[in-house]
Design a protein around this nucleic acid. Structure first.
Lengths: 261, 261
DNA sequence: AACCGTCGGTTCAAATAATAAACCGAAAGC
DNA sequence: GCTTTCGGTTTATTATTTGAACCGACGGTT
């Protein structure tokens, strides 16, 4: 791994629940020598990707990321354009909705919306990576990738995150085939016990599946009528976001989703 | 300059008017060997900071910047929180309003808002760097920096951008003193002929001046009543944004702005 | 259809930049 | 006042980056 990647990966340690990180902490987290970490942070800071709060204090993400994001959104409206749909989805289903995107071979949460319908809800405090094998979003996205990409992912070992996590590559392949046939994916406690979720794939302007839209709920509220409601709402919202992105649904998906309506 | 900075600086070549850049073009722009540029781009792409459109085509900013920006905004609401004020300012003055922030020793445009009042207006197509010596925003920000920072900037030679650009360091120092006394800065065609602008400094939670708020108009519309209106609106909006940012105005500025009202 | 320039991408020896351990002084905890 | 940890610095050693030349593919010209 090159130096540049090491520096960029430092940025990944900043999350909603850990927005401020000190030099020594970060060096430990990233398993880097403190001097190395310092030099990388200094370079990031010189370019405004991180900044220090007071004097000799912790680091946090800097203003440059805002500027870059504004440019990206100006060219490819993704997040802002999808937010209203995401919020409507949360409200409509009464559960937590979230949008994830494929970024450099890993699936990351890009945005989420809560519903006020219940006091208990699935919270999304971290901008953490969503494992392909254990989340409905991961399955939805993986199902619609190229064979090559899918095989690369499936050739790596999968951690057993809960007692319900499917880790067998053969069984996962079968589930992916099933997902392609249904047009949506489901996870029942595979990522976190007590959390069930459903997800649909999203497609960009080139017809590639570049993300997923999901609704996650406490297992206790996931009965059959609720599943039907969420499935329907997801397909509607998925169609909408794909359209906003200027993407087009593969014709078989379009058909599946129309039939489900 | 380290490898990391070289990679990060590649991102700076993406602007609103040049959102897609090919490998060879970028290598030329950044004055890098094509192989080096390719390796850096590959690392940036592996981390989602850039992406390629089709196959073997140009590069553009990637989705990772959105995720980082969302995190930054969650911790330090800057852009989103200021947008409504910025839009109101544009509408109120009938001219183009823009917000800039100090990022790693350079002042960059973070957001802008147009007014529909006139067909001719100052457009902000590029997210370019604002020169300290030739823009009202630059003067407003520089006036409120530490002596050390100010001296560093003033020790570098200034390009003569228009016939009205002030490039003499001594004269600039005098103007900065004047800006501190008035609580706002003005530029009459120093950056672009035919563009006059006025700006006020913005302050963050630690009392540091971290950006500026400006209104730019065609020179032909900048008469004395209009100047008064813009000055007043800027001070109002500046107070508001500083408050939203959790910052506090230096007492002398607060006094100046109150008296002007 | 042969030519030309340029594209994105690759190779490999040579050169340069990154690394890690030890070391600061300062501040915080005990 | 002792100990630990902090952010930051120094240094020789080491591994990575670099750049010229090269590749096949593509798009115009002639």
């Amino acid at each position: 791994m090159g130096t540049v990647s090491k520096a960029l990966e430092l940025l990944d340690y900043f999350t909603r629940s850990r927005p401020l990180i000190g030099l020594s902490d970060l060096a430990r987290l990233a398993d880097l020598n403190k001097a190395t970490c310092f030099r990388l942070l200094t370079e990031l800071a010189e370019n405004g990707f991180v900044e220090q709060i007071g004097t000799g204090r912790e680091y946090r993400l800097g203003p440059t990321v805002l500027r870059l994001a504004a440019l990206r959104e100006a060219q490819v409206p993704t997040r802002e354009a999808a937010m209203p749909v995401l919020q409507a989805l949360a409200q409509q289903t009464g559960e937590t909705a979230h949008l994830s995107m494929l970024m450099a071979d890993s699936l990351r949460t890009l945005a989420f919306a809560y519903s006020a319908a219940h006091v208990t809800k699935v919270t999304m405090e971290d901008a953490e990576t969503l494992p392909f094998h254990a989340t409905s979003s991961g399955l939805a996205v993986l199902a619609f990738q190229s064979d090559a990409f899918r095989s690369t992912i499936l050739s790596q070992p999968f951690p057993q995150l809960t007692t319900n996590t499917e880790t067998n590559p053969m069984a996962l392949r079968a589930r992916l085939t099933e997902v392609r046939g249904l047009g949506y994916a489901e996870s029942r406690g595979g990522f976190q016990t007590e959390v069930h979720s459903m997800a649909v794939p999203l497609f960009d302007a080139l017809g590639r599946c570049s993300g997923a839209l999901a609704v996650a709920a406490p297992a206790s509220r996931m009965n059959e009528p609720q599943r039907r409601l969420i499935r329907y709402a997801l397909m509607q919202a998925g169609t909408e976001i794909t359209a906003i992105w200027g993407g087009s649904l593969p014709s078989d998906i379009a058909t599946l989703w129309r039939l489900a309506a």
